[in-house]
């Protein structure tokens, strides 16, 4: 007979309603997510050794070298050349190009030389979507050199690109 809402329902409505109202207030003010500054990967005083470590991280991360393309230390029917020993091999791949130059060329202009037996398919990794910076490229090269060779790249090295 009575039309009023039962007390518990009113209570629940009050509690949920008030909370919802305050939550709504929280939604209408400017929304900003503050992210911590990204970790500094490469700093000016990094040694070649540091670069190798950073390069290794880049290779399996942002650089996407080891994500479905290249391998290190595998054989068989691979999609793209295995990178093991590339540090030593690089110097002898193209006549007239030093190991460093060869590696730089392979990264900046992958299509310039295709390892026999493989298809062309690599993108220049200094461009989108990967877009490594020059310093990051140096780190990757340092890492590549370290695979079977002695890394020589520093941040001051001129890659010629």
């Amino acid at each position: 007979m009575k039309l009023s809402v039962p007390m518990p329902v009113r209570l629940v409505l009050l509690v949920v309603g008030t909370t919802a109202f305050y939550m709504y207030l929280g939604q209408i003010v400017p929304q900003k997510e503050a992210h911590p500054p990204p970790p500094v990967l490469i700093s000016a005083e990094m040694t070649t050794e540091d670069l190798v470590a950073v390069g290794a991280e880049l290779a399996s991360g942002k650089g996407q070298c080891l994500v479905g393309c290249h391998t290190v230390g595998q054989s068989g029917p691979l999609r793209y050349p295995d990178l093991d020993g590339i540090g030593a091999r690089a110097a002898t791949q193209i006549e007239g190009l030093s190991g460093l130059e060869y590696l730089a060329q392979s990264l900046y202009e992958p299509a310039a030389f295709i390892v026999p037996g493989f298809a062309d398919g690599m993108q220049p990794i200094d461009q989108p979507p990967i877009s490594l910076s020059e310093d990051e490229m140096k780190a990757v090269i340092a890492w590549l050199q370290s695979l079977g060779g002695t890394p020589t790249v520093t941040l001051d090295t001129d890659l010629g690109y």
């Binding site: 305050y22 939550m23 207030l25 929280g26 929304q31 900003k32 997510e33 992210h35 911590p36």
Partner: peptide, 21 residues
């Protein structure tokens, strides 16, 4: 580690308050 938006924070607070009540 990031600081969430106020909107998200108020949602968490609201849920907490509801659980508490």
């Amino acid at each position: 580690a990031y600081t969430p938006t106020l909107g998200f924070a108020t949602q968490v607070v609201s849920v907490t308050v509801l659980i508490f009540f």
